Structures are given as structure tokens and as C-alpha cells.
Simulated assay, not measured.
Amino acid sequence: MDTGDMDQLERSLLEAPIIQKGDYQYFVHPISDGVPMLKPQLLREIVIKIIRKAELEDVDKIVTPAAMGIHISTAVSLMTDIPLVVIRKRQYGLDGEVALTQETGYSEEEMYINDVSEGDRVLVLDDVLSTGGTLRAIIEALEYIGADVVDTVAVIKKAGPTELDETGHDVKTLITVEVEDGEVVIVEE
């Protein structure tokens, strides 16, 4: 495949190393894993695409789960002047802290939201939409708080159904991929 006409995100995914985790073939990518090294050009391209795609009007806060949403969300925050809230896996016990249970296809753990209040208009950003478990838990917790989830964006979507499909909550993504025969394949959805 000629990668000359591709953007950085497509090229970086097609070149991503594949590792075997049990029966599962897993791509390793700078956005989802922090390795290989994240080049500024790739991060800049992704941030510009997010800013063009996301509903940003009157958004009060960007909300992202630790850890792999932080670099993307920090860059979007710097470009838009929208403050950033990181959902942490550590409990701090601050006033208004809300716990949520994050369930992914791989694990289950508690996470904690601080600094989001009733009436806040938020943009939820994440690196990868796979099973949808993390984003679903975050959106439900934000709705419990009384925040208005204006938009949700994940950089990479792994092809297939997610827990969000039946909720009516749309997650915008920049690219959809699957791993076939040890290679990343870009899927048109």
C-alpha cells in the first residue's frame, strides 16, 4: 500500500507493531500506549482533527481518563483555552469527588472525578474506543453529577460493537481499525 498520500495517523497505525496478548493481537501505538515515541507532527495532526470534529461551543471543561487521554487532552486544552479535568485512578477525598467503576474488556477498577459540577458543559476525550466500557462509565458518572456531555471524541476506534451503541450516545472518532493476520487494517464505517 502506498503511504505517500496518507495522513500521519493512518501511516502510524499501518506501521504499528503488533504483539500477541493471549489469544488477542494488539497494536502498539504512541496514542494508545505511549510507545513507540509520539512525534509532535502526529499529535498536532490529531489535535487539529479533534478541534475540527468536536462540538466546542460553550464547552466549560475537557474531561479525560488517566492515563492515555492526558497527552491528547492537554494539547487540545492548550489550543482551545478550555480547562482540563483528568479522571484519576487515585481517590483524593476532595469535596464533590465522584467515584465510578471503569470496566474494559481487560479489567475493572475504580476511578474518581473531581472539579465537575452540575450544569458544566463538558467535552469527553479519550485515546481509544474499544469495548466502550470506560466511556460509558464516564458518561454515566458525568450525567449523575448533572453535567451536560456536549460531545465525546476518541482518536481511534477498534472495529466492532461497543457498549455505547444502544445508549444513543454518539462517540466521534478519527479513524477505525482492526487487526487482521498480524496487521492493522483501516476500516471504513
Rank of each mutant, 00 (worst) to 15 (best):
G4K: 13
G4Y: 09
G4C: 03
D5A: 05
Q8F: 14
L13F: 13
L14S: 12
I18C: 06
Q20T: 13
K21D: 12
K21H: 07
Y24A: 10
Y24S: 13
Y26F: 15
I31N: 00
M37R: 06
P40L: 07
Q41T: 15
L42K: 04
L43W: 09
I46G: 00
V47F: 02
I48S: 12
R52I: 08
A54Q: 03
A54K: 01
D58E: 14
K61P: 05
I62V: 11
T64S: 09
P65G: 11
A66G: 07
A67E: 04
A67G: 03
M68L: 02
H71V: 14
T74I: 05
T80Y: 03
D81H: 10
D81T: 06
I82G: 08
V85G: 03
V86Y: 07
V86F: 04
V86S: 08
Q91A: 13
E97Q: 13
V98W: 04
A99R: 15
T101F: 10
Q102E: 13
S107Y: 15
E108F: 02
E108W: 02
E110N: 14
M111F: 14
M111Q: 08
N114K: 15
V116S: 04
L123V: 07
D126N: 08
D127G: 01
D127H: 05
V128N: 05
V128T: 08
L129V: 11
G132Y: 09
G133T: 02
G133W: 04
T134D: 07
A137R: 01
I138T: 15
I139K: 04
A141N: 08
L142D: 04
A147T: 09
A147W: 10
D148G: 00
D151W: 08
A154H: 00
I156M: 02
K157T: 07
K157E: 14
L164F: 07
D165H: 10
D165L: 06
E166F: 12
T167V: 06
T173C: 03
T176G: 09
V177C: 06
E178Q: 15
V179F: 08
G182Q: 03
V184I: 03
V185M: 08
V185E: 14
I186S: 06
I186C: 05
V187E: 12
V187N: 05
V187G: 01
E188M: 06
E189R: 14
